[in-house]
Computed example of a mutant assay.
Amino acid sequence: MTYPPPGYQQPYFQPPDHPQATTIVILGVLGLVLCQLLGPVAFVMGGRALKEIDNSGGAIGGRSTVLAGYICGIIATVIVVIAILVVIAAVLIALVAGTSTTSTY
């Protein structure tokens, strides 16, 4: 039996990345930085891609790239939800403040 020379590394199979990995990370980062409405898209797409990668048995790679986009999508989605809640609260406060003032004519 012959052994490889010292320092020789065996080549290994690296599975191809998920076809949407780059798209998900771009949407996640853009959702975090520019347009938070892209965050939920990255969040949903990332969740689906992570399930496909986990169920592939090692045939599909790119899990870390998809996970980065997924996490950015979660953060952007939380920002969107908080912004919507702040706007709703401001409108309600304005309505209550507008109706509670009485005129003394």
Rank of each mutant, 00 (worst) to 15 (best):
M1S: 12
M1A: 14
Y3P: 00
P4T: 12
P4K: 13
P5E: 06
Y8K: 12
Q9G: 01
Q9S: 06
Q10N: 09
Q10Y: 11
P11A: 12
P11N: 12
Y12H: 02
Y12L: 05
Y12M: 00
Y12D: 00
Y12C: 08
Y12P: 00
F13Y: 14
Q14E: 08
P15A: 15
P16G: 13
P16N: 11
D17S: 11
H18S: 11
A21V: 09
A21I: 07
T22Q: 02
T23E: 13
T23Q: 06
T23K: 12
V25I: 07
G28H: 02
G28A: 02
V29T: 09
V29F: 05
L30P: 00
L30E: 09
L32H: 10
V33L: 15
C35D: 03
Q36E: 07
Q36A: 14
Q36W: 15
L38K: 02
G39E: 09
V41K: 01
A42L: 01
A42F: 01
V44G: 05
V44K: 06
V44P: 12
V44H: 08
V44N: 12
V44F: 12
M45N: 10
M45S: 09
G47Y: 06
G47F: 10
E52K: 15
D54C: 03
D54M: 03
N55V: 04
N55Q: 14
N55H: 07
S56C: 04
G57F: 10
G58W: 01
A59E: 13
A59S: 14
I60F: 02
I60T: 11
I60V: 15
G61W: 04
G62D: 07
R63Y: 05
R63P: 04
S64F: 08
S64H: 10
V66R: 02
V66F: 08
V66L: 03
L67Y: 07
L67K: 07
A68H: 00
G69M: 02
Y70F: 15
I71P: 10
I71L: 13
G73P: 04
I74P: 03
I74D: 05
I75D: 06
A76V: 02
A76T: 01
A76D: 00
A76S: 05
T77A: 09
T77L: 08
T77M: 08
V78P: 00
V78T: 11
I79K: 14
I79Q: 11
V80E: 09
V80F: 11
V80T: 13
I82Y: 09
A83K: 14
A83T: 06
I84C: 05
I84A: 15
L85D: 07
L85H: 03
V86F: 13
V87H: 08
V87S: 11
V87T: 13
I88P: 01
A89L: 12
A90R: 06
A90Y: 08
V91I: 15
L92F: 13
L92H: 02
I93D: 10
A94M: 05
V96T: 11
V96H: 05
G98N: 08
G98M: 11
T101F: 12
T101G: 10
S103L: 10
T104Y: 07
